[in-house]
Write a protein that binds this DNA or RNA. Structure first.
Length: 95
DNA sequence: ATAGTGACTGGAA
DNA sequence: CTTCCAGCCACTA
């Protein structure tokens, strides 16, 4: 997962061999400690937006981090997945 | 052991 | 385009 690229829960789940179990990915991320080195902020829902649980400071932090990663949001607070979706193997195709 | 909930997804209306 | 319904598995009570 390089910077400036995001992945959906479903995508991560599939890559983890958990096809269809996106919720488990979300649950796993929810259980992550604060000081984790995992790029949890690059994981978004299928709409390319920040998910519910992030109603606290996390949503703001995640969005801020993504913007800092050159990831842009649209007027509805959603990311154009067509443009920022991480393609394993395709790598640096658009950047 | 069952029942309910959850950082979700995809198809149908 | 948006909203609703069903499926999926792990964790908690």
């Amino acid at each position: 997962m390089p910077r400036g690229r995001v992945a959906t829960y479903g995508q991560v789940a599939r890559l983890a061999g958990l096809a269809g179990q996106a919720r488990i990915v979300g649950y796993a991320l929810a259980a992550l400690p604060q000081g984790t080195s995992l790029p949890w902020h690059r994981v978004v829902n299928a709409l390319g937006g920040i998910s519910q649980r992030a109603e606290g400071p996390y949503g703001h932090i995640q969005r801020a981090r993504l913007e800092k990663e050159r990831v842009s949001f649209d007027g509805r607070g959603r990311i154009p997945l067509e443009r920022f979706r991480w393609r394993p193997g395709a790598g640096r195709a658009s950047l």
